[in-house]
Structure formats: structure tokens, C-alpha cells
Amino acid sequence: MIDLRRRTGALLLAVVIGHVVVISVQVNTASSVRVFEAVTFGLFSEVQRGVARVVGGATGFWNGYVGLRSVQAENDVLRESVATLRFRLQQERAVAQRVRGLEALLGLRRDIGFATVSARVIAGDATPYFRTVTIDRGTGDGVYRDSAVLSPDGVVGRVVSDPGPRAAKVQLLIDRKAAAGALIERTRAAGVVVGDAGQGVLRMEYVSNLEEVQLGDVVVTSGIDGIYPKGFVIGTVEVVRRGPGLYRTIYVRPQVEFSNLEDVLVIVREPASSTTAAGGE
């Protein structure tokens, strides 16, 4: 019998071949190794939940008791109400746009109501190369694959992979594989916003050189991708120049501060009980 402990080269070869097989299977079908992924994610999300709770508890204790106790509590309440108001403002803005748009002209009435559930970010990505976070809500709360994730500031990302019962993985909009249908709010020029994690900004693609785009223009979701609701703020145009081909080169500074995400809102299938935000109120 071959002693692999002595034949380190053979062992390395076997393991490398195993990795290559695993990679090639995924790249071909883009759907395998789900069991491994799901089990690992499910198990480790519980560890992450525990660690996040300990860290959150320690931070909360320090902020709430050792620090300025009453001021901190008051600040928390005010911050929460400001976040709620900002979120509602965005919703109202989305509603107003729809009323002003074609739907109003055609006399169509659509219900934009959607239920949301608040979620806490319990972990970041396991590698420094991707931009995903783990939230403490899963299928048990109505979260599903491709659920849009929002914050009071704007669009955060979407749920990727099949969420676990109590946790879900969210791909941030700045991830290099993320994309969303978008509009320049002022001119209604449509395009696609894609992530550019290396720079921490977003690129807006497929906007014609003939379209007028200015620095500071607000970029909002177009709703065309079927994931993000229409009219939510993505960011503002930071760089715009005439592109070499048909399209402009546009960089968008995201409205959401991705580096310190704590609480987010997730659009869910069914209205959740007490935690549901006033998405469709």
C-alpha cells in the first residue's frame, strides 16, 4: 500500500486534481456543489451569529453603559427614526416618479407595496476578494434568492445562493459580479450599473454618448432587472466622459456606505409579523 505521508508530491497532485475537478464542474454547470456550500454556510452562519452577538454585546455594553449612557440611548432612537424616515422618503420618491411617469399617463394603477424585513449584518466576506455579507434573516423570514436588500440610503445588493433558514448571503452592489438596471434620474437615460470592487465605485454602462449626463446626476434603479424596485437611489455620477465606442464612461459613487453596514431591509415574499417595515403602507 502506498504511504501518502511519504509521497508528498503524489498527495499534492491528487489534491490539486480534486480541486480542478470541483472548479471545472461548477464552471460548466454553475449549479453543483450546492450541498457542500449549503452545509458549510448553514453551519458557519450560526458561528458567525454567535461571534457577532458577542462582539455586538461587548460593543453595545461599552457604548451603552461605559460610554455616555443616556446620550447613546437617545442617539440610537433618533438614528433609527431618521433611518425610517429616510427610507420612507425614498419610497415616496419612488411613488412620485411612478405617478409622474407613464403609468399615470396611461391611467394604470400598480401596487408598489412590498413587504420588507429588517436584518442585521452578522459577517463580512470570508475572503478579501469578494464583496458579500451575511445577514441574520433567511427563508424562515420570507427571504428568498434574489431578494433585494436596501438601506435608508439606497440600494445595498441582493441575496445570492439559496438562503438558509436563519441566514442569507448578500452580494453587495460593489461586488465585481453585481449589476442592476439603472436610470439617470434627471434625463431618464437607461443603462446598467456594475460593481467595481477594486475602486469602491460603480460603473454605469450602456449609456449612449448622445445622452446628456452631468456630474452629480442622481442614478436610480430602473426596475428592469426584476430584482430591485424602481426608483431607489444607487448613487451620484462622479466621473463622466465620452467613451471610445458608442457608450459613455460613467463612474457612480454609491450612496450607501458599504464599509460600515449594520442594519438593512430585505424585500420578502410575505409580510412578516412585527419586524416588517412599512414597505407597502
Binding site: V22, F130, V160
Partner: peptide, 24 residues
């Protein structure tokens, strides 16, 4: 191998790439 594969499964990437790199 173990660290890389678990890290891959938890991240948003292709499972095996990090495992391969860390194995090597």
C-alpha cells in the same frame, strides 16, 4: 485544502479556487 474550501464556500466565489491556491 480545508481552510481554502471552507472559505470558498462562505464567500461569493467559485468553490475550489481559494482551496487550490491555499493548498499550493
Amino acid at each position: 485544502t480545508v481552510g481554502g474550501l471552507v472559505q470558498d464556500a462562505l464567500s461569493g466565489g467559485v468553490i475550489g479556487v481559494g482551496g487550490l491556491a491555499k493548498t499550493l
